[in-house]
Amino acid sequence: MGVVRIAVIQFPGTNCEYETQRALISAEASADIVSWQLSSEELVRYDGVVIAGGFSFQDRVRAGAIAAQLPIMQGVREMAAAGKPVLGICNGCQVLAEAGLIPMGEAGNIEVGMAHNTREGQPIGFICDWVYVRVQPSNNLFLKGLEDHVLPIPINHGEGRFVLTDRAIAALPTLGSLVYCDSAGEVTPHFPINPNGAYANLAGLGNLDGNVLAMMPHPERANFLKQIPTFIDSVWADHKQQFPNALIETPGPWAVLFQNMVTYCHRQGDH
């Protein structure tokens, strides 16, 4: 297989597509920012797809709801069904949830709701901060090699609280997931460790087949060591202090996620 081609979908209101493209290029993919008006037929020619963060369609109706209804999402569904990697980041996570792509992947059947942030049950509005997540062991292709790692990552959302149906809760142990934790990896349900009141501290959730990942935090903003702040309690902040002149390309904690996506596409292409 030659160069892996990944599509980054740009809806009106998407605002993280260029950082996402940059992260994919650093993983040696060819990443195209494609319009939401691209046909499904053209989209499925790509090896994988990312729905980046932002406020698609100004969050009208609900965050991600309008984008989830667009014809291009049929292409995303087909790619997911074909085993191609599908990543949704922040607003992309909300779009995948609204489209029913996590966790069951049944079109028209929503099993996950992304509710407004709460602190101990009270609405708290938009949050923008660095948090820590623990990667749960699973079959998810994006999380390979990151199992049980505790990684810093920024969050930036108003509606990021995972709410699951009973059916999704029953499937949870078999799904790839990221859970909010403290810097030592301890998972406790209270603010600020769980910054938005998410069910089971969920920060991200995969599908049953392990080729879809929807995550509220922003891995593209922690893809390079340069992006990591020194004030956080993490070995990655220590690295940055040790190497203040690190090259812009020096990988950060989440570079592995994008590399996993590209590596998986290569393997698929070889078969």
């Binding site: 109706v61 309008i66 209804q69 609204e98 028209g108 929503i110 709701g113 709410v163 699951l164 149906t165």
Partner: peptide
């Protein structure tokens, strides 16, 4: 087609 006007989970 996913419901648009109502999110049945929420």
């Amino acid at each position: 087609v996913s419901p648009l006007l109502v999110n049945p989970v929420l």
